[in-house]
Simulated assay, not measured.
Amino acid sequence: MAGIDGDPDFVSIREYYAYKLQMRNDDESFLLHFGRLFQQYVVDMYVKLESQRLDYLRTQQEEFRKEFLQGIVDSIGTGEVWAANVGQRVFLQASFIGGPRNMRRKYIDAMTLVQKFGKPDIFLTMTCNPNWPEIKEHLLPTEEAQNRPDLVVRVFRAKLEELKNELLKKNIFGEVAAYTYVIEFQKRGLPHVHFLLILKPQHKMFIPDEYDKIVSAEIPDKTKYPHLYRMVKKHMMHGPCGVLNPSNVCMTKHGCCKNSYPKEYSEHTIQTLDSYPLYRRRNNGVKIKVRKQKLDNTWVVPHNAYLLAKFNCHINVEICSTIQAVKYIYKYICKGHDRISFHINSDNPNNQIDEIQQYQAARWVSPPEAVWRLFRFSMGEIKPAIIHLQLHLPNF
């Protein structure tokens, strides 16, 4: 295996641990089967890798261009309140994947697509299913999927590539003019992907009848579509929440569901002015028993029947072409990973703002994310590519 700069005698930290985490039929190593200890191991190894990169950035501060941090107006714009701190910031550059500036750059790049191609048409979210057969068949009889983050992320990435093939090559929703997607990891660890698709003008949707061809929010016929019926029951039923389950995780302090379930009945899909459409949810008396409660069409999460039946996981599909304020959609998918936000103020005027330390103190790393980054899988993609034009200031 070629190592650093092609030198076969040396490998990087990431290359070494990526090699250690491979699945081999003739390998008697028990590293991958240590259960929760393996989860801790991969997190520690990724934190070691990330710390090495951040330490390098800390030692190279003088090499970075920081003119925009030296101006009074620009410093106030970034939230600086102490004049003594102008130009005294430990800088975490935008090229560091996952950092605040990197996520903001992704957001700005995604918004650039809107200027060229217009508003997005489809918002799609796919979440990993730990019970996929591809995962189950590679587990030992006593193993749980949560203790094999390496296996989980490998299968999810394979499913992601197949989803991209359906969306971008087979064009199941129509020809795509531009798209962006971002990988995120929930606190419980499972990866999920947010897609935003901008269709070509001849494939855009303008009337509710076209929405119904792509998105469904009803329970399918159990006799005609038994497989789809099982998928909707397993993956696409929200809650129950509200009066049926006041302690559900989606409930707010005011006793309401943050996702506004259950929805209202509607005989037809209605196009709204500035939100997602009100999808067809007929009051036909069909109900499914989910978590000890009988739920009807008002609890169904919007989905595409073909993708749901094929991928066997939670896969939410929404029509967003009518939304005027598309800014919040792009901010939502580019918000970055879960982190704890806190700040301790000091009256010491010489106190230096350390962006690297702030990032490390607030970072939340789950085992699947650690393995994903060790394998150097992509954290997102945008096409067509966005080229950044550098602005050169006078006297610098």
Results as ranks from 00 to 15, higher is better:
G77L: 13
G77E: 12
T78K: 08
T78C: 06
E80P: 00
E80M: 01
V81A: 04
W82N: 05
N85D: 05
V86R: 00
Q88G: 01
R89P: 05
R89K: 15
V90S: 02
F91G: 06
L92C: 03
Q93H: 15
A94Y: 06
S95D: 11
F96V: 07
G98C: 02
G98D: 02
R101C: 06
R101W: 04
M103W: 10
M103R: 14
R104G: 03
R104Q: 15
R104W: 08
R105W: 04
K106A: 08
I108K: 06
I108N: 03
D109K: 06
A110F: 09
M111D: 02
L113R: 09
L113A: 08
V114F: 05
Q115N: 13
K116F: 06
K116E: 15
K119N: 14
P120G: 02
I122T: 07
I122Q: 04
F123P: 05
T125A: 10
M126E: 05
M126A: 15
P130W: 00
N131Y: 04
P133H: 04
I135E: 13
I135T: 11
H138I: 04
L139I: 14
L139D: 13
L140K: 13
P141V: 06
P141S: 08
T142K: 08
E143P: 10
E143T: 05
A145M: 06
A145R: 06
N147E: 13
N147L: 00
N147F: 07
L151I: 12
V152F: 10
V152K: 09
V153W: 07
R154Q: 14
R154Y: 07
V155F: 01
R157D: 13
